[in-house]
Write a protein that binds this DNA or RNA. Sequence first.
DNA 1: CGAGTGACCGCAA
DNA 2: ATTGCGGCCACTC
Length: 116
Amino acid sequence: MDDDIAAGFGNRVEAYVRQIPRGRVMTYGQLAALCGSPRAARIVGGTAHFGDPDLPWQRVVNKQGGLASGYPGGREGHKAALEAEGLQVSDELTVDLGRLLWWPAGFEPSQTGLPL
DNA sequence: CGAGTGACCGCAA
DNA sequence: ATTGCGGCCACTC
């Protein structure tokens, strides 16, 4: 289910990632905070690697808007995947969070302290 | 069952 | 502004 998330941490992360619309991105810390542990951003990455590969992990980026390093194909592969979704990636392998960052309903960026 | 690692983030010096 | 360290959950050895 989408709202009915009653499982482990990684399972909640997958649920949020699965709800990320195309052309939008979310940060690890954000997903971690939504899951109940703003300091457990590492688990988001770990879950991504051991989670369901069918999920759009390519839409998940770090707080800097930069791409991940362990992505299949490297940052360049991640960049290509984002561009393939219609996302705009800079030459520094970064995306404009203030424009492409997406948030689930009932949540505001102020709670995560984003540089908006 | 115990210890270590991991696609990170936040704070302190 | 930059560098270094701790912390959290899940998975693997």
